[in-house]
């Protein structure tokens, strides 16, 4: 039985841009925020430039705090040592988490503190944060207590 308690040190860091900076700024403060259309209230992840739900070009898009709770939507365990920065971590889990705020609102993450053979679709999870550098904190998930 194998599990990860941390994915640090992180070998691949995101390069936020003007559009995505709020997500990473919030993560640094251990808050999970997701972009949301202020007109139709639909969440988007990854962020979009135009709401693809209401398609209103005048609709404002803003990042809003979410609960950080969700369920495992799908999962795999990466055994292949072919990704730069992750060679020494294999095997490690990769999970798509469906956030509880909206059906189909998925985030890619790893899962910490969970034996791989206990990974299940539908498993309740919650966000945790790992410092990757002075500038970047990475949201991760773990089984919900």
């Amino acid at each position: 039985m194998t599990m990860k308690e941390t994915m640090a040190p992180y070998g691949v860091l995101p390069q936020p841009d003007q559009h995505t900076q709020p997500f990473w700024d919030a993560a640094k403060e251990h808050r999970l925020v997701i972009q949301r259309c202020q007109r139709c209230r639909h969440y988007h992840h990854p962020p979009v430039f135009l709401c693809t739900n209401c398609n209103d070009p005048k609709a404002t898009l803003a990042f809003e705090g979410v609960s950080g709770r969700g369920t495992v939507y799908a999962h795999y365990v990466h055994h292949f040592k072919n990704i730069g920065g992750f060679e020494d971590k294999a095997p490690y889990p990769v999970v798509a988490v469906e956030l509880e705020e909206q059906r189909g609102l998925l985030m890619v993450t790893n899962i910490l503190h969970c034996p791989y053979d206990q990974l299940r679709v539908g498993m309740p999870v919650e966000v945790v944060f790992e410092k990757a550098s002075d500038e970047i904190t990475i949201p991760q998930f773990r089984p919900r207590k």
């Binding site: 992180y10 995101p14 990704i83 920065g85 990769v94 790893n110 990757a132």
Partner: peptide, 25 residues
């Protein structure tokens, strides 16, 4: 890109967690 130590654009939502290949995921 799998050798890069940074992730721009859409890759910032996957590469930090090592999703090598969107087709596989």
């Amino acid at each position: 890109q799998n050798e890069d130590d940074h992730a721009r654009g859409d890759r910032q939502w996957s590469a930090p967690w090592s999703t090598a290949d969107w087709l596989q995921l």
